[in-house]
Write a protein that binds this DNA or RNA. Structure first.
Lengths: 131, 131
DNA sequence: CCGGATCCGGTGGGATACTG
DNA sequence: CAGTATCCCACCGGATCCGG
């Protein structure tokens, strides 16, 4: 196993996660990262445009998630020295390349979501029947 | 946006998540699901075999995650009416089909992990330089 | 307009002990 | 062997208020 969380009791876990897959998924698996990336895929957007576009995200989480995505190199942030401030976000080449394999997964999710829901209902039915 | 978490104040969120991608990622994005699936991909395993194989997972989480994966139809569980008990876990067809697009993502993570780490270090360096 | 700071609840996940 | 029950903490994410 490539886990090895052994010694590092650090609260950081910021860089050099030993397992690439885990590392990537930890970043992408959160509530918002992927949604932001896909929203940003077709267009460069400003902060509040993004906020309106996504709708049900708090400004906090948007800000926080954007920062992480930027740190990880998925998106690029351009600040215009204007008043009022203007900040634009866009995907980096890395971000775009990430979305390619991700598209396959998204397509899979779309195709198989119904089956998953059905499976859940069946198990739910069994349980209710027993109880 | 397809989020619509509107009314459902239920603690469950068990079935019928409106957004397929979110739904799938919520299940798969946790610490253990994917690791279990990949471990189970090449071989059918018993509970404790799985436990040893993964190593740093608690039995609780193993049990809990297996149950969810089974409910969602990713794995199948076969109980042998023996003493001592014997339970085998294997991927379902759905589970196998899921791993196909997932492989692409795993490959991507492997290829680009170094770049992500580097990007993190650069940002870290910037911050430290300023501070 | 673009966020940061703070508070606070829900949940993921570990440790341990117990059951069938 | 294959789990469950309980406790407990860390962290994610929402709400709100504040600053540049």
């Amino acid at each position: 196993m490539t886990t090895t969380n052994s010694v590092e009791t650090q609260t950081e876990t910021e860089f050099d996660h030993p397992c690439p897959i885990r590392d990537v998924l930890d970043r992408i698996g959160d509530q918002w990262s992927l949604l932001i990336l896909t929203t940003l895929a077709p267009a460069t957007l400003r902060f509040n445009e993004l906020h309106r576009e996504i709708g049900d995200i708090s400004r906090q989480m948007l800000s926080r998630t954007l920062k992480r995505l930027e740190q990880d190199g998925f998106i690029e942030r351009k600040i215009y020295a204007e008043v009022p401030p203007k900040v634009e976000y866009k995907l980096s080449p890395l971000g775009h390349s990430f979305l390619e394999p991700m598209q396959a997964l998204i397509a899979w999710a779309d195709s198989n979501h119904a089956q998953i829901c059905q499976s859940r209902r069946q198990h739910r039915a069994k349980k209710d029947g027993q109880a």
